[in-house]
Design a protein around this nucleic acid. Structure first.
Lengths: 204, 204, 204, 204
DNA sequence: GATGAATGAGTGTTCATTCAT
DNA sequence: TATGAATGAACACTCATTCAT
């Protein structure tokens, strides 16, 4: 039997993985991870069930890839925008990045929910690695920017790594409920309070 | 027919629910909630499967009861200890409670893991309510102690509720990884840094 | 502990069975027999679960009692109405009874559904017995009325019993779908066609 | 490892569904539909539980398929036999088909019981559709044969559809008890009475 | 590489029935 | 008589994973 030639070659080898990632992401967003079956994913990706296992060991490996991918994208955008701006003060640069990320996640609450809910501890370390991501062989992730900034600006911090850790945790855990539940107050009102506190943390 | 006398009356009516709670807790701790089946629970509790549904609608209702119960116990102990101490400074009272809770959870990392992993948002509000719990008709939960302390000590905070929210979130999210993974640094070393930051937050 | 005196003694012994029958009937009607649990019934009847088993062996025994009871009521009403009427012609008397029953069941489609759906064969014989029911020591059920009528009116039928059997089956099976589904035609339009056929059956 | 050669290849792909249908039919017959569990069916069909759900959504979908399948077979046989006969009179053709079906169901009382007991109203319409089934692009089901016969033979019926409806219901409801319970009389004795009545219905 | 039919262990849930009180 | 807590067998259904093609 002759095979029909499809106008859009949905079977091109390279695309299979991407289709799986994309469709899984959509499903994880709309139905939650637990209620998305592998069957659902392969159906939407127009791929056979067995094919899934050629690319991922299970649903949760796929999830991890997605979280990393989307986080990286988010922080890279933030850094690009920062470069275009003319902010010179170190503290304000940090605030700028945080502000950008908060705004993005406020626009995409489902992404926030997805990242937060699934940021288990195996994945957490990979996520932190995201903040180290290199472009052009140069250290340029958020993390390294932070450390470089601390030393270049003569900021006196006993332990810069721990300070960044505290800032990240404070921001993510508090903003989560403020954005999604406006509790104990809406993100818009919370931001100035939060930034004031962060500035205090970065002060000598 | 004579009835055998059991040394431990595993059938006493009142105990059924408690046995379910206790055994479920143990299992949730050791295997995680998702990998604990209701079958497991009833087996360990020496109770019929149907009996489970006499007391709880599902596994997750049971989990919520457990989280609330254990959180309450923890904070009540902290408050009792605080009363016996002679700490008068407000900030130091808050630090005392945090320190007590951190120490307890450091001793019981599984409890920490259990509470943290499962503190979903439906349950989060009930958990916060825990901090309002009354003893002797008097408002005496952590939450109310905090607000009372703020006003009595002439502490100037723009929004005390939000400050407490930030403290709670900062403490819980950072200590979690410090205790369980000693990352980015062990809890013992992290504590002084954390407390310093909290004092800053409570300063005028 | 003193027991509260209830204004309506819902516990009077004789009423328990009636309450079970009544509430079960309501539930069977609204939810169907299979989806009505004994728990449902005893809850609505304000009776303990074990009590159910003092009066009935199971759900299906209760159902049979209900079908008989309601069928009897229906035919007794029909016969009473017939007596008050001045119809002398035998065929017309039969038609009158059928018409009355059809009208009643058209008004109470749930009752029709209940009776039809559950008229299994164990119960069928008891149902037929309904048509023999005696009042005042005199044979006066539909069945006996029919046989008496046949002989008194010099109606020539090879086998009156079989003719009645055919009439009953034809009426019940066809009217069921006409009333409930107006298919293949509504009961109102079907009636004249049906009655014409029945008159033919009773003709010599 | 050499694979054992099975005498009957119980795993041939196409057969799975048939084996499920066949074994389910046997079980439905012998134990009734309600008392046949899906476990029973798959055990007898030598198929895994999950496989069942590859072919049917639930037990009742399978039942419907079975009823349709067997009804169709029955009526097709009747029509084929009719073609081979030399019966020209319309009424007698109808009687012939009825007689054939009654005889078949008398031989297979379990099939009768199965069809009758489960001919709910969702399935009823599909069953009626059976009577319309086409062979050779020509309308040749019982239903269409009936309507064609009515017009070609100048049979005067006010509403042929309703007449057929009445005949079908009368036959099925009365024969059911006559065959299975010989009540109120055995099918053999009932047939002539029934056919006489049907002829009357088809008379002008 | 790709497929998708087949698997079967596992799940949560229901509910008629029992029996000590 | 009456209770209702307790039982546990039975149920329908899911889904990650395998493997012959």
């Amino acid at each position: 039997m002759k095979k029909k030639i499809e106008l859009v070659d949905t079977n091109s080898k390279v695309d299979k993985e991407n289709r799986l990632l994309e469709e899984a992401f959509k499903l994880f967003m709309s139905k939650g991870i637990k209620d998305t079956s592998i069957q659902d994913i392969v159906n939407n990706a127009n791929v056979a069930k067995g094919t899934f296992y050629l690319y991922f060991n299970d649903k949760y490996e796929l999830r991890d890839v997605l979280i990393i991918k989307h986080s990286q994208k988010l922080f890279n955008s933030a850094l690009k925008k920062l470069e275009k701006s003319n902010i010179n003060d170190f503290s304000e640069q940090i605030i700028f990045i945080i502000d950008y990320v908060i705004d993005e996640l406020t626009k995409k609450p489902l992404l926030l929910q997805f990242i937060s809910k699934n940021l288990g501890l195996g994945i957490y370390n990979k996520f932190i690695a995201t903040l180290h991501s290199n472009i052009n062989d140069e250290k340029s992730g958020v993390y390294d920017l932070f450390l470089k900034g601390v030393s270049e600006n003569n900021i006196k911090l006993e332990n810069p790594t721990v300070t960044l850790f505290m800032i990240i945790e404070l921001v993510s855990s508090t903003c989560f409920t403020c954005i999604l539940y406006k509790d104990p107050l809406p993100i818009k009102e919370y931001k100035p309070i939060l930034y004031k506190e962060i500035r205090k943390m970065l002060e000598f």
